[in-house]
Design a protein around this nucleic acid. Structure first.
Length: 491
RNA sequence: CGGGGCGUAGCGUAGCCCGGUUAUCGCGCCACAUUUGGGAUGUGGAGGUCGCAAGUUCGAAUCUUGCCGCCCCGACCA
């Protein structure tokens, strides 16, 4: 596998883009850095969204929606926050266009300048905390557990389909609590929701951890994250959950009276995952034939392709398939019968492979005579002949198998690519030749992390939550260290 | 914002260095026929401001200048 990856590494970007375009997930747009999510890609996002949303509600959260526009002054109320986002904000300065008096088409009407510019939200902490100020007076108003599904805009220099687009879709949870501990518990709880979703639904193993100061969210006290490993050996931050302390409460003056009538600032969290998860999915499982989707998230789990000569055979196949479709639906298997006559079977086989459909069934007169169908699985490209009796049940098992198999495959790859390094030479060599996560000692200072980044482009992805304490010496400075941290080159 | 590559039909391209009839080829599209178990075949057909603008020239896809856009690599970042 790693050989394949090495040969692929050079063209990895091209490979990644091809898979997305050919699977029909997304398209480039007319607007620089933005992306069009096509129906198939959006169906996938909806499946992810629905499952996450369900979990948010099970953990007591409610959805709400806040404005797209943020007054410029809001953003500057929390110092670290504005510092972190200032360089990538889109700004609305005018509210009207008019015909150019010189006949050059339409121009911005200089008369229509806004008194205060509006920022298109790069994230919603500020506008939400400005609102929370009016919602929270008493401990009875707490905890306040709100999530929003929204689009945000970050004007990045360089973009990449799904991984980093100028506008992207995400969810952002924003909660307020009476105590520090309660907020920390919430932060960890949501991190666990993300980790379980990544592993159980996306079949993508992740490392749960906490970020170093350098990688911390702008305005957070602590940033927790899930880190995944892509097939080219680079790490990807797949989700974050922030303990914000009282930073935003202080910036927006959000105080509450506790049971003893003492006034205090509330404690906050925020957490989010984005359409970046789709990019993660692509890079975690795909192969050279296209996308490979985990059955639990695949918009189409089973595709059935008829093979026939003439109307008579078609009718016969239709009848058999109708029964299979009905049985599948009763088991909640999402099934598509593609009897489009304008495409030949071979074309369809290739098409659905590129789309990552987990199971493909081919059925023709020959099979029906023997009461069987050809069942092909996408994950390992094997085919077997299965009886039509009890087929839906068998498919159900097969879907579970595939889900498990692609998780195990990704987990094996990930585990093989967490390597310990104890000397600087090993560290550099591992980064260049093996890639993946490097577990190494670090003296705990931002300066050392910066230096390592400068020398190797590797950053500390996280300090794993389940870390073993271990005495050692920093890989760069030789200063004492109490535990290993995970380094990697990252997206 | 720096470095590299590119812009010719819906997509992918040849032609450009060395200017010259009607701009090449493949895929896709339309029609008909034969086909259908791994991206079918034949015949016929439609489709072009050669990225934009200016210049040189009898003549520009081709040469010159300016501009615009896209992709990749850096810095930035989820």
């Amino acid at each position: 596998m790693s050989k394949e990856i090495t040969s692929r590494e050079k063209d990895y970007s091209q490979w990644y883009n091809d898979i997305i375009l050919k699977a029909g997930l997304a398209d480039y747009s007319a607007v620089r850095g933005c992306m069009i999510i096509k129906p198939y890609g959006f169906a996938l996002w909806e499946k992810m969204r629905d499952q996450l949303d369900k979990r948010f509600k099970e953990t007591g959260h409610q959805n709400a929606y806040f404005p797209l526009f943020i007054p410029k002054s809001f953003l500057s109320k929390e110092a670290a926050h504005v510092e972190g986002f200032a360089k990538e904000c889109a700004v609305v300065t005018h509210y009207r266009l008019k015909n150019d008096p010189d006949g050059n088409g339409i121009i911005v009407d200089p008369e229509a300048k806004l008194e205060e510019e509006l920022i298109i939200r790069p994230t919603s902490e500020t506008i939400i905390w400005n609102t929370y100020k009016t919602w929270i007076q008493s401990y009875r108003d707490l905890p306040l557990l709100i999530n929003q599904w929204a689009n945000v805009v970050r004007w990045e220099m360089r973009t990449r389909l799904f991984l980093r687009t100028t506008e992207f879709l995400w969810q952002e949870g924003h909660t307020a609590h009476a105590t520090s501990q309660e907020a920390i518990d919430e932060t960890i709880q949501m991190l666990n929701v993300y980790a379980e979703f990544a592993e159980d639904w996306m079949a993508m193993p992740v490392v749960k951890g906490v970020k170093s100061i350098n990688e911390r969210f702008a305005g957070a006290v602590d940033t927790y994250c899930i880190e995944a490993l892509m097939q080219d050996g680079k790490a990807l931050q797949a989700g974050t959950s922030h303990f914000l302390g009282q930073n935003f409460a202080k910036a927006f003056d959000v105080k509450f009276s506790d049971k003893e009538n003492k006034l205090d600032y509330v404690w906050a969290t925020s957490w989010g995952v984005s359409t970046r998860l789709i990019g993660a999915l692509v890079m975690a499982h795909s192969d050279d034939d296209g996308l490979v989707l985990p059955p639990k998230l695949a918009p189409i789990q089973v595709v059935i392709i008829p093979i026939y000569k003439g109307d008579e055979q078609k009718k016969m196949v239709d009848e058999k398939v109708a029964k299979i479709v009905e049985d599948c639906k009763s088991l909640n298997i999402s099934v598509k019968y593609d009897d489009d006559d304008s495409r030949r079977p071979g074309w369809k086989f290739a098409e659905y492979e590129m789309k990552g459909v987990p199971i493909r069934i081919a059925i023709g007169a020959r099979d029906i005579e023997q009461n069987v169908a050809e069942v092909a699985r996408r994950d390992n490209k094997t085919k077997e002949t299965m009886s039509l009796d009890g087929l839906a049940d068998a498919l159900n098992h097969l879907l579970n198998d595939i889900q498990e198999n692609i998780y195990n495959r990704a987990a094996q790859f990930r585990n093989e690519h967490i390597t310990k390094a104890d000397t600087w030479e090993d560290f550099v060599q591992l980064l260049d030749e093996k890639c993946g996560f490097i577990s190494a000692h670090w003296d705990g200072t931002p300066e050392t992390e910066d230096k390592i980044k400068e020398l190797t482009k590797a950053t500390i992805r996280c300090i794993p939550l389940d870390n073993q304490k271990e005495e050692g010496k920093c890989i760069l400075t030789g200063n004492p260290s109490g535990e290993r941290v995970l380094f990697a080159r990252a997206y």
